[in-house]
Design a protein around this nucleic acid. Structure first.
Lengths: 214, 214
DNA sequence: TCCTAAAAGTATCATATGTGTCTTTTATTT
DNA sequence: AAATAAAAGACACATATGATACTTTTAGGA
């Protein structure tokens, strides 16, 4: 477990002794989670800082009326709870599910507070919390100021860039894509149809051909 | 200036010597801003951590098409830039304007990095960044999952609670209220009219009478 | 291989909000 | 007090998305 931790930049400079002490003190804990398991429900108290060693998690923001939006995906090296442990409220603002069988290290708030005596850890930790904020800002911008079509085209262009071709395979199902865009599935299909009609894209099952780059 | 800083919880435990060194080194700087001045434009590089000694600022998230939404209000004791200095990107995700003549202390990133050697400062700083995240989460929830009517009723109930009466004065103009709700002004009036028609509220100029509490 | 459940796809109707324009009232400045 | 600007208020129309319901296709397990 200590080795696993030390592989992460966040813990690189933390001494093995300190880690061992915390482990013996039950402040650090490793658990495994099966795919599909609910990690945290929206509204749950956040009591630990979680580091992902393997597998992946997804977070969904849920509305009272049942609508939902996929917020973030977390995988190896990512962390959870950093911005919840030290704020005014400590409840999860979204639900967290296990996507692929995951190996997670849980640290108590006390453990994190101890580690914050380490300057390098502090800088890393602050960086993590800041990056999270920035992702939130991006989501806000997406959902507040932009139309589905704009967000879709952005996503397609990003994929075209990643896969280095204008004819690329969608990395996720259209259902997931709808979730990620924060719209109902029929809305997504409607917009895809319009984009086809307007000659901007072609759709073949899971493949998209991006014809115009605005 | 040192006295002004020491009044803030964030700097309470920082030694005067350290502050003096940083000031002499031009790492800490005090400036005054007139009401109406643009502090930062959306997209500007964030280079300093800013602490408000007096006055107030507002932040607006702007869209390419000109639509805008008021995000946050900051006043004495609040800070700006904490979650920007240490993340992946360092650009302001919204524009910041001076609302009331303000007295601001600017700290360079280096100054903050120095101060992070102080454990109490670190805990405070992490708390600030975390709280900011939580505010962002709230905004996301508001704009993503809720209708204008719900947000309005929330706001009214909050005001009724604050002013301890169901017949209260709006603390801001309806124009500002529309901005805060993230909608166009006509949309706000339309909804106010509907709420009147449905017997939920009565509107008399700047006063609202909240008749039903759901 | 067949069966079943999930994903994909389509159509219709309802509704929330944006956009533009116009009038009236209130506030500010000279 | 008059002049001007800003806010308030209302209306018509356009549009984006939600909600629902249904069919077809795909994929995974017995």
């Amino acid at each position: 477990m200590i080795e696993g931790l030390k592989e992460m930049p966040l813990f690189a400079t933390v001494s093995s002794d300190k880690l061992e002490n915390l482990i013996c003190d039950n402040q650090i804990d490793k658990k495994y989670y099966m795919s599909g398991v609910t990690f945290y429900d929206q509204g749950d108290e956040c009591e630990t800082f979680d580091l992902i060693l393997s597998g992946s998690l997804v977070t969904y923001s849920l509305a009272e009326n049942g609508s939902q939006m996929m917020m973030f995906e977390f995988s190896r090296g990512h962390t959870l709870g950093a911005n919840l442990l030290f704020g005014d409220t400590h409840t999860y603002p979204f639900s967290v599910y296990c996507q692929e069988r995951a190996e997670i290290i849980h640290l108590t708030k006390d453990a994190v507070m101890t580690l914050l005596y380490n300057y390098d850890f502090t800088l890393n930790f602050v960086g993590i919390v800041s990056s999270n904020s920035q992702k939130l800002n991006q989501k806000i911008y997406m959902t507040m100021h932009r139309t589905l079509r704009e967000n879709l085209l952005d996503f397609f262009q990003q994929q075209a860039h990643l896969q280095k071709t204008n004819y690329f395979r969608l990395p996720i199902s259209k259902k997931q894509l709808a979730d990620q865009m924060g719209v109902q599935r029929p809305s997504l299909f409607r917009e895809l149809k319009r984009l086809k009609e307007d000659g901007v894209i072609e759709v073949e099952n899971r493949y998209i051909h991006l014809k115009k780059t605005l």
